[in-house]
């Protein structure tokens, strides 16, 4: 069973790396968003530095969303989802592996890339580190909350927009604590660790609930 799951992980990573895969594209979208924001707000570096963590977090949420609609839909279309559902491994584990693969190709690159984008918006080194750390522990929550929406819209032809509508309200707490923790690192009245630990808790909770709900949605969908 472990070998089957490992094979699934490798397959999903390979697919994400191919042309049209979500891996590089999500990262590109993230970079675009962060680049576009100063054009709207003006090149005031003080302002950009102050709202920098918020910009990076918003961009991360949106970048996670765009790749999500294909998470189960692609497998549904070519029939591999049926095979996965009849596999020996429980569907929940399959969802975890697929979510993990999605995070490795979307959330992780975003977190690693954030410091370089932080240079563009005049973040201090501490702030860059903090944003990276919060993205690292917070993006799993985004992936797995989004996974529920992806499972619910797997059979829909144009599920992408519906997915965003369903999933964005559920991402509000993650966004709040992610930005709070990143801001707390650069000053403010609260210690960094309080929102950071809550963010980790939210991620763990999202992995559990998101996995169970997405597996249930896939089972009930067919």
């Amino acid at each position: 069973m472990t070998r089957a799951l490992a094979a699934l992980l490798v397959r999903d990573l390979k697919l994400a790396g191919r042309i049209g895969g979500s891996g590089a594209l999500g990262l590109g979208f993230f970079v675009m968003l962060v680049t576009v924001v100063p054009f709207a707000l003006g090149p005031d570096l003080n302002l950009l530095a102050r709202i920098g963590p918020a910009i990076l977090w918003l961009a991360a949420v949106l970048a996670t969303l765009i790749g999500l609609d294909r998470l189960f839909q692609a497998d549904e279309e070519d029939g591999s989802l049926d095979l996965l559902m009849h596999a020996e491994a429980p569907l929940e584990l399959i969802v975890v592996v697929k979510g993990f693969a999605h995070w490795l190709t979307t959330g992780l690159p975003l977190a690693l890339c954030a410091p370089f984008l932080g240079l563009l918006i005049a973040l201090t080194p501490e702030a860059m580190l903090a944003v990276s750390a919060t993205l690292l522990v917070g993006t799993p929550a985004l992936t797995f909350i989004g996974g529920v929406g992806a499972a619910l819209t797997a059979t829909m032809r144009r599920g992408g927009l519906l997915l965003s509508v369903l999933v964005l309200p559920l991402m509000v707490p993650t966004l709040i604590f992610g930005v709070s923790a990143a801001n707390a690192a650069t000053g403010g009245t609260i210690p960094f660790l309080t929102p950071f630990l809550i963010l980790i808790a939210l991620s763990l909770l999202a992995i559990v609930i998101g996995t169970v709900a997405a597996a249930a949605a896939l089972r009930h969908g067919s």
Binding site: L152, P169, L170, I209, H220
Partner: peptide, 12 residues
């Protein structure tokens, strides 16, 4: 499908 969404929302 809506049930699953509603329950996830309820936890949220």
């Amino acid at each position: 499908a809506v049930s699953i969404l509603t329950l996830v929302g309820f936890v949220n």
